[in-house]
């Protein structure tokens, strides 16, 4: 569904992504892990057209979308749940969901209920300003908002960041649930252990280059990855 070939992204003169190739098959969960500053967010932002890539190809459903405007990319069915939630604090929960469907002209009522089914908490807080939600609730809203676009591919940038362990588990369950309903997922995580457990395939990014790739469970067994990203204990 999404194929990235030899992608380079620079900020000013500094290379942040130095020629990576990633494949995200339809209906899969693919994860991209790596240390702080490895270039994970930059990769997702380049796919979404928020930063201009220097060179390479980003093929989505057979079409090169590199260099296209974010609006066109969203319209083609890619959404990004950005790093740090970025819900619209001055809009209500319901309005945040509605704005997720900004490009749609069909009836969105049913999809709002679907999001409420996934996150009953949001239903209770429908009329509350998003800025007054807790961190976890905001993350749920950010995911729900992305779903409202009815995307084919959802990219999530560290959805579990700063959440309590119980909520993290809940978010990971939801990610699997969304995937089961047919949406392809490209997931960035600091929580490499959990991400690799649910992922079909994983890539490890190291200062702008891919250092490892493989099936999620294989990477989980890899000694070097265990040392570098999973800590010494495999919990």
């Amino acid at each position: 569904m999404l194929k990235i070939n030899d992608l380079h992204v620079n900020y000013g003169g500094i290379a942040a992504v130095k020629g990576i190739s990633i494949h995200v098959p339809e209906k899969s969960i693919v994860t991209l892990i790596g240390a702080n500053g490895a270039g994970k967010s930059t990769t997702l932002r380049a796919i979404a057209g928020l930063v201009k890539a220097a060179s390479g190809e980003i093929i989505f459903q057979g079409e090169n979308i590199l260099g296209k405007d974010t609006i066109d990319i969203v319209a083609k069915g890619i959404t990004l749940v950005p790093e740090g939630r970025r819900v619209f604090a001055n809009l209500t929960v319901l309005e945040n969901l509605k704005i997720g469907a900004y490009l749609r002209n069909d009836n969105i009522e049913e999809d709002i209920y679907k999001v409420y089914d996934l996150f009953p908490r949001l239903k209770e807080r429908e009329w509350q300003l998003a800025g007054t939600l807790s961190g976890g609730e905001q993350q749920m809203l950010a995911v729900g908002r992305a779903l409202m676009a009815k995307p084919k591919l959802i990219m999530m940038d560290e959805p579990s960041l700063g959440l309590a362990p119980l909520v993290v588990n809940n978010i990971f369950e939801i990610i699997q649930e969304i995937n089961k309903q047919g949406t392809t997922i490209l997931l960035i995580e600091q929580n490499a252990n959990k991400a690799l457990k649910i992922a079909d395939y994983g890539y490890v990014l190291e200062t702008g280059n891919l250092s490892f790739e493989g099936k999620g469970l294989e990477l989980l067994q890899n000694e070097k990855i265990i040392d570098a990203y999973l800590g010494t204990s495999k919990n």
Binding site: V74, P82, R86, A89, L91, I99, G100, A149
Partner: peptide, 20 residues
């Protein structure tokens, strides 16, 4: 109007919603 309020808070995320 909703788009205006969203844009007033965060340009980039507004673009991610497909807002011009």
């Amino acid at each position: 109007g909703m788009a205006m309020r969203a844009v007033s808070k965060d340009f980039e995320t507004a673009r991610l919603m497909g807002i011009n």
